[in-house]
Amino acid sequence: MVTLGERAGRRAGPAGAKRTPSVLLKYVMAVSGAIMLLYLIAHMIGNLKIFFGAESIDKYAHWLRTIGEPALPEETLLWIIRVVLALALVAHIASAVILTRRAHKARPVKYAYRPPVKGSYAARTMRWGGVIVFLFVVYHLLDLTTGTLNPHGVQGEVHANVVADFAPGRWYVTLFYALAVIAVGFHVRHGLWSGLQTFGRSSAATQHTLQAVALVVAVVLVVGFLSVPFAVLTGLVA
């Protein structure tokens, strides 16, 4: 395919640096995604405290706010985590928006006929799945962090808030929560493996193992997060 010449000099070469390489933006996505994934794992494990009774999880929530006291003011660690997560979220979404725009520009004309061939459901739903997860996070913060949308909504009474939230009469909340958590699972299933590939940690020998690890992490997260609302729904936690 030799059409070299007419446009060759204009573009090639290091001086032609025009935009941040997509590979760099992918590193940003991978690092910010890893930060949020680590938080998610800690969050899921913390949630399981609810199975040890109201006192256990309420005390745990209180402890999170008092780490470092009296040397540090109240909620110091919590706010550090919140700021880091917010920065990671902004970086993750900003890179995703830039990369998505580039992808659309790189394929301006769609195929008239192109059935899905290889791409897993998880890989194909990263973008819209990410939007759904983001909307859920906004709702989730208003529900269980600020208490604004929670029927109980008392700061520090974590157990009571959760039980009121997932009461059988509010099945639609539980349903939305479940769908959002499953969306997180799909996002993690592709995102974790994709991040490892982005950092060059994947090889022909390890690719299938890493994909299996990503699947296991995603399933464990989904089961862990769903165990709480379903325990409330079935009366196991009341």
Binding site: R11, R19, S22, K118, G119, A123, Q197, S202, A204
Partner: peptide
Amino acid sequence: VQAHDDEGFGGCTNTGECAVACPKEIPLD
């Protein structure tokens, strides 16, 4: 990498479609 991006190609999302389509079976790794 810079030349690739300046030409207007998009970024990789590791979907693996390329390796399936490749007539020479270049692996994804």
